[in-house]
């Protein structure tokens, strides 16, 4: 498409932005890596001697580390499944012409604009509380034992709250993609004898593939660092049941004042994020250049 001249002009013109972004990224990264090799605890100020790989060793052998890794992956995976499947469902519903579509669309989008801390608190106190919460009341009125969500199924509860917040994002992107599907293709498939489910499977889903890829990539980036919802609801507990990597880093650097160890965790998180990113790109990246 582009000529040689226009390509080199394009490179020249985006270079200031690229340089700025690179610095923006490189400076904190280098500092984090540097701190991770120091014995640097805020409780013993002054000397910050070189520690070698010690911080990494202690961070990785910490008994909560394993839990944190699995919790992070379960959190990301669970939320992705719920939001993608749910998002496709909502998009299909909203795509149909119906009464009050405008209002319903705004209502569906709304959760995305609620701050994470606020939505987590609302869910914690208004819905999940076993005594005063709505779910607890419903259970009691049906004569059932109310579930203490954050004690019995803590990780699932967090997955649920975060999914509720990200569902609108997925819905919005998938709905836009769905609306860009050529109606004549669907009509042609209908004439070709495809049932609704075949049309969904062979026409709509392939058309949505790219949007689904975008949703998964963007959400993964944000979901690897879920934090506020955990802080205001479970504080990583009970035990380490809801401690993810981000929360573990917070615990080491800000609750135990160990900057060196926190940085080591940070570097570890960067590596984990990159591994996940490479996997995702491999798995679904080919959809993007189709």
């Amino acid at each position: 498409m582009s000529t040689k001249a226009s390509r080199s002009a394009a490179r020249l013109m985006i270079s200031p932005a690229v340089v700025l972004l690179l610095m923006w990224m490189i400076v904190p990264l280098v500092m984090t890596v540097y701190f991770s090799f120091l014995r640097y605890n805020l409780l013993s100020p002054g000397a910050t001697p070189w520690a070698g790989w010690e911080n990494y060793y202690w961070f990785i052998t910490d008994p909560s580390f394993n839990d944190a890794i699995w919790n992070t992956l379960a959190l990301v995976g669970g939320i992705l499944v719920i939001t993608v499947v749910g998002g496709i469902g909502f998009a299909l519903l909203l795509d149909r012409p119906m009464f009050g579509t405008g209002v319903i669309r705004i209502m569906v989008i709304a959760p995305f604009f609620v701050m994470p801390t606020v939505s987590a608190l609302v869910w914690k106190n208004m819905f999940f509380n076993p005594v005063n919460g709505i779910f607890g009341n419903i259970a009691t009125s049906l004569g059932l034992q109310p579930i203490d969500f954050f004690a019995e199924i803590p990780l699932l509860s967090i997955i649920f709250i975060v999914s509720w917040m990200w569902l609108p994002f997925a819905t919005l992107i998938l709905l836009t993609a769905l609306q860009s599907l050529d109606q004549e293709q669907l009509e042609a498939a209908e004439m070709d004898g495809a049932s609704w489910s075949s049309r969904f499977w062979y026409i709509m889903l392939p058309h949505l593939a790219r949007a689904i890829t975008v949703v998964i990539l963007i959400q993964t980036i944000f979901l690897l660092s879920v934090f506020a919802e955990i802080l205001v609801t479970t504080n990583g507990g009970p035990g380490t049941a809801t401690t993810n990597l981000t929360y573990l880093i917070y615990v080491s650097s800000l609750l135990q004042f160990d900057v060196g160890m926190g940085s080591a965790g940070g570097v570890f998180a960067i590596i984990l994020a990159n591994i996940v990113a490479i996997f995702l790109m491999r798995m679904i990246g080919k959809n993007l250049d189709a």
């Binding site: 293709q185 070709d192 392939p206």
Partner: peptide, 29 residues
């Protein structure tokens, strides 16, 4: 319904399925 009428239609925009090869397009019905 359209599928039961045994008619085939050729659309102005062709309405080919973009993610399928020509062979799969023709095989689809």
């Amino acid at each position: 319904p359209p599928a039961k009428r045994g008619l085939a239609m050729v659309f102005q925009s062709y309405a080919l399925y973009p993610h399928m090869s020509v062979r799969k397009n023709i095989a689809f019905p």
